[in-house]
Every structure is written in structure tokens, then in C-alpha cells.
Amino acid sequence: MSTLLNELQVEDAKLHLTRPLATPTDLSVDATKEISGALTAILADVYAIYMKTKNFHWHMSGAHFRDYHLMLDEQSVQLFAMTDDIAERVRKIGGKTLRSIDDISRMQRILDNDADYVEPADMLAELCSDNKQLAAELRVAHTLCDDCGDYSSVSMIDNWIDQTERRVWFLYESYRH
């Protein structure tokens, strides 16, 4: 009897592994698809800005090295913290999200910077522009989520917009003459 029970449990576990991800939600299938797509694209952008921020943090130089280095480190921590919240929100509403670095590179709208050397002021200006672009994308997603009645995502996006605007402000004030 226990062998049969054990075999049934194994079969059930195998079936469970082959079932598609389908977290229950009261949002419509279309809303889940649209919101998941928008948030996943934002997630790819956040990863791209995170990596660029770390790149510039590592390669910072010049008279204001310490201040810029610390600011970019603080901003990269904030960006990285956003990634889990965004991905988990997508999963909570029944969507699928990023699975690999290739996914990020296919979906990101933020351009990479692989230059051997970038002037500190240019680093800050580029990150400022990237964060402004992210804020704009977050506003689009905010409207979509609001229209679909996804108020939890709206609330989270409110916070991400505020954080992004703060990064823009600090970056702008750091590089302007």
C-alpha cells in the first residue's frame, strides 16, 4: 500500500512540475498579459540601469571620486532592490517574467555603455537621462495598471517613480555646472 501511495505522490509531483505557471488572480487574462509585459520590460530596464550604474561606480575617477562613487553605490542598491519587487509583482498577478541575461538584453530599452573610458560628468548625465527614461516608462505602466484596476501595482509604481525622480535629481545636481 505504501509503495502505491509513494508512486502516486511521485506521479503527482511530476504532473505539478509540468503544469504551466498560473497564479490565480481576479485580473482579466488580457490585463495580466499587458501588465506583466509592461512590468517585465521595466524590469529589463532596471537591470540595465543597475548594471550601468555599477559599471560607472567601478570606473569613476576624478576630483569628486568619493562622492560620486558612494552616490552610485547607493543608487545601485536601490535599483537592485526594485528588481525582486517588480518580478514578484508580475508573478503575483499570474504573469511570467525574465529568465536570463538574454531576456534582459532582448527587452531592455536602456542602452548599454561599454566604452573603455567615460568622463565622470558624462557618466552622471547618461545615468540621469536613463533614469528620466525609466520614470517615463513607469508613468505609462502606472496608467495601464490604473486602467486595469491593478491598484497594488499602481501603489508600487508610485514609489518607484519617486525613487527614480530622486536619482534624477541627485545625478543632475551632481553634474551640472
Rank of each mutant, 00 (worst) to 15 (best):
residue 102 D to K: 14
residue 161 I to G: 03
residue 79 L to G: 01
residue 143 T to M: 01
residue 159 N to L: 15
residue 32 T to P: 00
residue 35 I to H: 10
residue 115 A to W: 09
residue 113 N to M: 00
residue 80 F to W: 11
residue 71 M to W: 07
residue 87 A to Q: 02
residue 85 D to F: 03
residue 176 R to V: 13
residue 164 T to K: 11
residue 157 I to H: 08
residue 128 C to M: 09
residue 67 D to K: 14
residue 163 Q to A: 12
residue 61 S to T: 07
residue 40 T to C: 06
residue 87 A to K: 02
residue 4 L to H: 13
residue 26 D to W: 14
residue 26 D to E: 13
residue 96 K to H: 14
residue 151 Y to E: 07
residue 8 L to A: 12
residue 19 R to K: 15
residue 17 L to I: 10
residue 72 L to G: 06
residue 116 D to F: 11
residue 99 R to K: 12
residue 30 D to H: 10
residue 57 H to M: 00
residue 78 Q to C: 04
residue 3 T to W: 15
residue 155 S to T: 10
residue 7 E to D: 15
residue 128 C to N: 13
residue 19 R to V: 00
residue 49 I to F: 06
residue 92 K to I: 04
residue 21 L to Q: 09
residue 50 Y to N: 12
residue 157 I to K: 12
residue 158 D to H: 11
residue 59 H to L: 03
residue 176 R to G: 06
residue 93 I to Y: 03
residue 20 P to T: 11
residue 19 R to Q: 14
residue 36 S to C: 10
residue 150 D to T: 05
residue 88 E to F: 01
residue 67 D to R: 13
residue 82 M to S: 04
residue 38 A to S: 11
residue 118 V to E: 08
residue 2 S to V: 09
residue 19 R to D: 09
residue 2 S to C: 06
residue 83 T to K: 02
residue 17 L to Y: 13
residue 82 M to C: 06
residue 113 N to H: 08
residue 83 T to C: 00
residue 139 R to H: 09
residue 127 L to H: 07
residue 92 K to W: 05
residue 72 L to H: 07
residue 163 Q to M: 11
residue 58 W to D: 02
residue 3 T to E: 15
residue 9 Q to C: 11
residue 21 L to A: 07
residue 66 R to K: 13
residue 87 A to T: 00
residue 72 L to A: 07
residue 31 A to T: 09
residue 13 A to M: 11
residue 133 Q to T: 09
residue 74 E to K: 09
residue 69 H to W: 04
residue 120 P to K: 06
residue 36 S to P: 04
residue 150 D to A: 03
residue 176 R to A: 12
residue 21 L to H: 07
residue 92 K to A: 10
residue 70 L to A: 06
residue 74 E to T: 11
residue 56 F to H: 15
residue 28 S to E: 05
residue 155 S to M: 09
residue 44 A to Q: 04
residue 90 V to S: 02
residue 7 E to F: 08
residue 142 H to V: 01
residue 135 A to P: 04
residue 164 T to Y: 14
residue 44 A to Y: 02
residue 46 V to E: 06
residue 12 D to R: 15
residue 98 L to F: 03
residue 52 K to G: 08
residue 98 L to P: 01
residue 52 K to M: 12
residue 107 M to S: 09
residue 91 R to P: 04
residue 73 D to C: 00
residue 155 S to N: 15
residue 82 M to D: 05
residue 112 D to I: 04
residue 15 L to Y: 14
residue 27 L to E: 09
residue 148 C to V: 01
residue 42 I to C: 02
residue 55 N to A: 03
residue 2 S to D: 13
residue 57 H to Y: 13
residue 151 Y to M: 14
residue 169 W to Q: 02
residue 70 L to M: 05
residue 121 A to S: 13
residue 48 A to I: 02
residue 6 N to M: 10
residue 106 R to G: 05
residue 97 T to R: 07
residue 3 T to P: 08
residue 71 M to H: 08
residue 55 N to T: 04
residue 161 I to V: 15
residue 171 L to E: 03
residue 10 V to Q: 13
residue 86 I to R: 03
residue 159 N to Q: 14
residue 107 M to N: 14
residue 50 Y to L: 06
residue 86 I to W: 00
residue 144 L to R: 10
residue 74 E to N: 05
residue 92 K to L: 01
residue 29 V to C: 08
residue 163 Q to Y: 11
residue 24 P to N: 05
residue 165 E to H: 12
residue 159 N to C: 06
residue 122 D to A: 07
residue 44 A to P: 07
residue 174 S to Q: 14
residue 60 M to N: 03
residue 38 A to M: 00
residue 109 R to H: 13
residue 96 K to I: 06
